[in-house]
Nucleic acid binder design. Structure first.
Lengths: 146, 146
DNA sequence: TGATAATGTAACCGTTGAAATTACAACTAA
DNA sequence: TTAGTTGTAATTTCAACGGTTACATTATCA
């Protein structure tokens, strides 16, 4: 299973907010236009980001504020905000290994730490990238366009 | 989205084959009993593992053979065999960013390398664990049981 | 104060994939 | 030939994603 596009959409949102916030009123309609999706999809995502404390959203008037320094919000923070993993586990485990079987009753003890390590490797790498990197990277790309 | 339980089921299969192959005839029914699922689920997985060249399956008579040294098959090999990712990408990307928008037409260039790095971090960790580790780990756990 | 514009949500739909299950053809060994 | 096993098609159930419509709520401004 692939990780849902909510993640790349959320990163797109943050990038667009950073780039456009001084020149445009960045609404869910505006973002939906840039991302190529429906405004309601955006609003649901904004609600998740808001609940995670990463942004504030002005009701009625519209407008999105990032609550921290860009360098203090990592990809991992965004990922955690929008990906609701059951128990926080990346890997789904088969639910009914047979306790009557020696392998069945020990398979969790055998695999859990290894799966955890793999998940941590991914999450550690996610923590290396921040919204600041997105802002700078996008400025470079835009400069090259002209 | 969680990664499907096919991964842990496949690792369970390999562990059970290693542990029981000298004492039992390890069939899809036998494995289904240990794993707590349906024999057809197991057969489909075995077909994937077979297609990846990791095992051979004896038709008619039944019986599974691992084709390489246990130390030469990593978690990553198993993962690749059973998880069919579109384009090999762990992260699904929103499909219609707006090319009229400066951010929309550059978002792929901005994110692709970073997403790739994150995926590679996970896959590199997967390459560290082999079926040999599973065999040894399970032997230790079984020894502790008595 | 009324009109306008935006967010917050509920409700629903279509699609996809996972996991399970039944059924049966194909195959192998005894 | 028979019993046991694999290979695979067909079907079902369920959950999640992404999309869409509709509308109540909220804030600003003329």
């Amino acid at each position: 299973m692939q990780i849902s596009s909510r993640f790349t959409v959320a990163l797109h949102i943050f990038t667009a907010v950073d780039v456009f916030k001084d020149d445009y009123k960045v609404t869910s309609d505006f973002l939906a236009g840039s991302i190529g999706t429906n405004p309601v999809i955006i609003r649901k995502l904004l609600t998740q980001l808001k609940n995670a404390g990463l942004i504030t959203v002005a009701r009625g008037t519209g407008g999105i504020e990032v609550t921290k320094e860009l360098s203090e919000i990592s990809f991992y923070d965004v990922y955690q905000a929008i990906e609701p993993l059951e128990g926080g586990d990346l890997f789904r485990f088969h639910e009914a290994p047979n306790p009557q079987c020696p392998v069945g009753r020990n398979i969790h003890a055998l695999l859990d730490d290894k799966l955890q390590k793999i998940q941590e490797a991914m999450e550690s790498e996610m923590k290396k990238y921040t919204l600041q990197d997105l802002w700078e990277g996008m400025q470079d790309l835009l400069a090259k366009e002209t």
